[in-house]
Design a protein around this nucleic acid. Structure first.
Lengths: 152, 152
DNA sequence: CTATTCTTTACCATTCCGATCGAGAAAGTC
DNA sequence: GACTTTCTCGATCGGAATGGTAAAGAATAG
């Protein structure tokens, strides 16, 4: 259940792009500096985002990267799937494909529910939300529950 | 966002223990066979569960493993923390310790909300639920949402 | 044609993961 | 006390994934 550097970087770069004016491309170097991401690594990530149709790139002077569609149409789930694949996987297998027997028969159902709860957050939050500093109601509700900030 | 083999194994072994009568210890080999887990690997996992106070072990003939407390007092979150540490971590750091600036300022809040939604499921489901085949309301509600089983 | 900036493929060093091994130490049995 | 069973612990290992680097190439604009 850990969020990798790659996903973290991809989302932060996306947020940065969402904050920039839509017409002018942002250079990879500027993105890297703004979010403190190793440039070479970031370029790989941006390429994957481009292949997934999330980002557009332009070469040459005055080149750079920009979002391929409106920031509010790009969810964090989209980004995670682009750079890492499925949101939740048990031993690399999609939850609904997992078989179990004996006392753990219902465990796959739990994994499916877990994925649903991940989706509820990650599909709801868009790059526009991040850039605009206004998180959606689902998130605000979750943040309002007592003890959310407890390390546990 | 993947569930490791270790976590999967630990929970399945826990469920198996929960299904067994409370007084008689279950041998590692039986657990391994019942849930198709490599024995040597399982032993390592059971050791960690014991160190966390979730499982008790007894050596010798008629020895084996048993739950250290009632199955309904052991949540999946307990087990995951025992074998893997914190439920959610960004690049190995706890969500509330993450700092971000620029356009991604609110990202840590999203991570915290994400952890909260993980907790809602993983703290709710106990080994007794798994062994008894009756999942708690939170989970049933999530499973009832449309499209939960879509691979996406 | 030249400077700039993205593109692509390949590569590398660590770390983590899943799994195995072997010696040993309790617990009970004869 | 010898013996069997079963857990205990530390070490180790191959392979994959992670995080990051390098370098040659291709598009774009001036």
């Amino acid at each position: 259940m850990r969020i990798t550097a790659k996903v973290d970087y991809a989302i932060r770069a996306g947020a940065e792009l969402a904050a920039a004016p839509r017409e002018t491309p942002v250079k990879g170097e500027d993105l890297a500096r703004a979010q403190q991401i190793p440039l070479r690594f970031l370029e790989n990530i941006l390429r994957e985002l481009r292949h997934a149709g999330i980002v557009r790139a332009q070469r040459g002077a005055d080149g750079g990267y920009q979002l391929a569609r409106a920031a509010k149409e790009i969810s964090l789930a989209d980004i995670i799937r682009a750079v890492e694949g499925p949101l939740a996987a048990v031993q690399g297998v999609r939850p609904e494909a997992v078989r179990a027997d004996g006392a753990a028969q219902d465990l796959p159902e739990v994994w499916i529910a877990l994925r649903a709860s991940l989706r509820a957050v990650l599909e709801a939050v868009t790059l526009a939300d991040l850039a605009g500093g206004r998180l959606p109601p689902v998130v605000r509700r979750l943040l309002a529950t007592p003890g959310v900030r407890e390390p546990h």
